[in-house]
Write a protein that binds this DNA or RNA. Structure first.
Length: 499
RNA sequence: GCGCCUCUAGCUCAAUUUGGCAGAGCAACGGACUCUUAAUCCGCAGGUUCUGGGUUCGAGUCCCAGGGGGCGCACCA
């Protein structure tokens, strides 16, 4: 925000002018305000009260003053709590400390007690007999009609955004419902929720650059987890046949409209299942979340309808590439031909890429953003999937499938690699990649290999990007809109206030 | 990291395409008002136009540099 750079003494006249109404300061702030009725409940319970009607029933409400309409010996305040809004109707002859109440600031928290009435103009109100100031608000909270649009304030001072701007609280409430719904849906299928370490001695389970931290008492560096996978698989080996975790993972990457360095991942593993079983589970979770928060399985995204009703179409990577580009692409044609095709499609590929990496690059650049879907894209090349089991019938491919909706990858489904010998070979291939300069390649995890040697049954796994799912369901196009406190550059040093 | 855009009152925004006294609404402050709904009305304040430099008789406006912010690209989910 531009004015942060301005010397503070220039701001002082305005700072002084704001929030300086003195009267309410005489009120003592109580330690509690019990038994408040939520505004939404007041609205519902007295919906049949006629204009001008008096309910004869007194109750207490509490919330934040959003608007004040002062009218001499009358005053109206719009009070907002978590559930909704209700009007306070204050009369000089009825309301204790009436003159004090008129000096409330916008943003103040107030608790009030009085009879529920409906005004002559039809607004359901609490006719305030007694009231308490619960908190004073100081500082500019934006235009009362248009709110605050400065992204710098909205994101760095999210508490302001949450109450000053329409729809923001609702979006985060919806996010909470989505997460709760995912837990219910998984629980209904017998999945057990566990919590695994965030600090990893070796970052595994995905391809990404990790954050490094230091554990003093162990005199060694640890990594913030980039995935949940390896510990969850060890739970399966230990006998948790259906297990999941919803947790934060961390990847040392730039930010963007779809990227935040920490994000919330759901991973679930199901013994005796394969990637097709997991595709069904994905649909169940995604469509179930949509139904829980929107009432249906068709959502609107970017003004286009998106029907998430299961079952979704399944198509191979080769099929969808050909549909979108008109060009046939597959591993069988070999590295040289794949490179030639990539060039003709305008896709740049690194020197060290093998056939599978080139094919995946072509898919991600040309095809995925153009798949409205929803569709499950299946049969990925083996070289880009080091923890996935080889395809049962197609050499060079693995049993991996990604649910795509609105051109976005929402998650992953796998037939998990359960063979310790194969797994060791994949780790060694990754080590070679790493030696060749790929910072995202995996490190060999001997603990995990030893676990696999204890015996892992055929297992299906899924990953689901919770943030992206919420974006899809709320029709927002920046991940910051679904993260309460997104990663931001540290705030510019503000000159000290000298008053 | 590279490209494009942007920065005016506490907030939201104006300020003749092509330089000519920096404005409005809301908020704040003082006042009026017993049924308001972004209440209304009267009054009063509030500005280093992000910073620094340049061109010019004159710069919010044009040029250069720096800073904050946004959006694309790239790595990634």
């Amino acid at each position: 925000m531009a004015h942060l750079a301005r010397p503070s003494h220039r701001l002082r006249p305005q700072r002084r002018a704001r929030g300086e109404r003195g009267g309410v300061s005489g009120k003592e702030i109580p330690y509690r305000f019990a038994d408040a009725t939520p505004a939404a409940e007041v609205t519902a319970r007295f919906s049949h009260l006629e204009p001008g009607g008096e309910s004869g029933e007194s109750l207490r409400v509490a919330g934040r003053v959003m608007l004040l309409r002062l009218q001499g010996k009358l005053a109206f305040a719009t009070l907002r709590d978590w559930s909704g809004q209700v009007q306070l109707f204050c009369l000089a002859a009825v309301t204790e400390d009436f003159e004090e109440l008129k000096r409330a600031n916008l943003g103040d928290w107030i608790g009030a007690e009085g009879e529920v009435v409906r005004t002559k103009r039809g607004e359901l109100s609490v006719k305030v007999a007694r009231w308490s100031l619960l908190a004073r608000a100081r500082g500019g909270f934006g235009d009362k009609w248009r709110g605050i649009h400065d992204p710098e304030v909205r994101l760095r001072q999210r508490e302001v955004d949450l109450w000053a701007n329409e729809g923001v609280r609702e979006r985060f409430l919806l996010r909470s419902k989505v997460v709760a719904t995912l837990r219910q849906l998984l629980s209904a299928r017998g999945f057990v929720e566990v919590e695994t370490p965030v600090l990893h001695p070796i970052p595994g389970g995905g391809l990404a650059k990790p954050f490094i931290t230091h554990y003093n008492s162990m005199h060694s560096d640890f990594y913030l987890r980039i995935a949940l996978e390896l510990y969850l698989k060890r739970c399966v080996i230990g006998g948790f046949e259906r297990v999941y975790e919803i947790g934060r993972v961390f990847r040392n990457e730039g930010t963007g409209s779809k990227y935040n360095p920490e994000f919330t991942m759901l991973e679930a593993y199901q013994a005796y299942g394969d990637y097709l079983d997991m595709a069904e589970l994905q649909e169940y979770l995604i469509a179930g979340s949509a139904a829980a928060v929107t009432g249906g399985t068709t959502v609107t995204f970017e003004d286009r309808p998106l029907d998430l009703t299961p079952p979704w179409r399944r198509a191979t990577m080769s099929e969808v590439i050909e549909e979108v580009t008109g060009v046939e692409v597959n591993l069988e044609m070999g590295l040289a031909e794949l490179r030639r095709l990539a060039g003709s499609l305008g896709v740049e590929v690194a020197e060290r890429f093998d056939a599978g990496q080139v094919m995946t690059e072509i898919y991600e650049k040309t095809t995925e953003p153009n798949l409205w879907g929803p569709v499950h894209v299946m049969d990925y090349p083996e070289s880009v999937s080091p923890l996935t089991r080889k395809h049962r019938s197609k050499p060079g491919y693995v049993e991996r499938l990604t649910p795509i909706a609105a051109g976005r990858e929402l998650g992953e489904c796998y037939s998990e690699l359960v063979d310790p010998v194969d797994q060791r070979a994949r780790f060694e291939a990754q080590a070679a990649e790493r030696a060749a300069g790929d910072e995202e390649a995996m490190m060999t995890d001997e603990d995990f290999l030893r676990a696999l040697e204890r015996g892992m049954p055929p297992t299906g796994g899924i990953g689901l990007g919770v943030d992206r799912l919420v974006m899809l369901l709320t029709d927002v196009h920046h991940i910051r809109e679904v993260l309460l406190f997104p990663a931001l550059r540290p705030e510019a040093q503000r000159p000290p206030e000298d008053d």
